[in-house]
């Protein structure tokens, strides 16, 4: 049968592993039977079912994170053959072998391929990436957004906080407190919203603190890496413009 001939083909993985947050990283090689249309997650599931290395040694199953399996949640981000991307949309047929999997080391490694993206969520809190509408009475409908604006704002709303842009940024590292591209683009998104705009200055101020927007060094790797095609460098430049205006406004008024 066709299936048996296909199953004899093997896919090789070299995976960077780490048992605990503080422990040393090491690498292990696995051979997984090839199936048509498989992706990195289905291969990891195979390793989980049969955690034996290429040398035949029994080992612990490789740990990873995933949820949506359709590139919208961002949980499965890892470094695949040197590039940060989502494992669920990384098709084996399109990858060069052996396939190397590593965690995104810009973030603290929890175990194997699992990382802690907490800094991204605290960044969103820091810049107040939400629209405050809660009150004690119904405020009624807010102002409408122009369709021309909605079109580009929608693109920014596709961000899934996956962390790929931070991983690709040379200025996000342990010597630098740069907030990273994703949160800056979210400031642009929420400041573009007709109701969100009412708290625009608070968000700009958050970008004008230590480790804010000034940390961008214009390597522009982020815009080339974002899986959602978000125009991050345009967002950063637009926020550069708005924070510059905010700076002069503060100097010249009051």
């Amino acid at each position: 049968m066709a299936e048996t001939t296909v199953a004899s083909k093997m896919v090789t993985f070299i995976i960077t592993r780490q048992d605990k947050p503080e422990s040393q990283a090491y690498s292990e090689t696995f051979k997984v039977p090839y199936r048509p249309n498989m992706n990195v997650i289905s291969a990891l599931m195979e390793i989980q079912r049969n955690p034996v290395t290429a040398e035949g040694k029994k080992t612990t199953p490789v740990v990873w994170e995933s949820n949506c399996l359709e590139e919208v949640c961002g949980a499965c981000s890892m470094v695949i053959n040197g590039k940060p991307r989502q494992a669920c949309s990384a098709l084996i047929d399109q990858l060069e072998q052996p396939i190397r999997l590593e965690p995104m080391r810009t973030f603290p490694v929890v175990r194997d391929l699992v990382i802690d993206r907490e800094r991204m969520f605290s960044a969103l809190k820091k810049v107040k990436a939400w629209i405050p509408i809660d009150g004690t009475y119904d405020l009624g409908p807010g102002p409408r957004m122009a369709e021309s604006k909605r079109q580009w704002a929608y693109e920014l709303s596709k961000c899934m906080t996956c962390g790929v842009c931070l991983e690709s940024c040379p200025n996000v590292n342990e010597r630098n407190s740069f907030i990273g591209p994703a949160a800056i683009s979210q400031v642009r998104l929420f400041n573009a919203h007709p109701t969100g705009e009412m708290n625009k200055e608070e968000r700009l101020e958050a970008l004008m603190e230590d480790g804010g927007i000034e940390g961008c060094g214009n390597s522009q790797n982020c815009v080339r890496s974002c899986p959602k095609g978000i125009p991050l460098t345009t967002s950063i430049a637009a926020m550069n413009r708005d924070t510059t205006k905010q700076l002069f406004k503060k100097w010249l008024t009051v």
Partner: peptide
């Protein structure tokens, strides 16, 4: 500022990243 950056040209060989380094 230079000290605060980590060149990652090995992984991202883009023109602008070259210029950054």
């Amino acid at each position: 500022v230079a000290y605060q950056s980590n060149s990652n040209l090995g992984r991202f060989k883009y023109g602008r990243n070259w210029a950054f380094t």
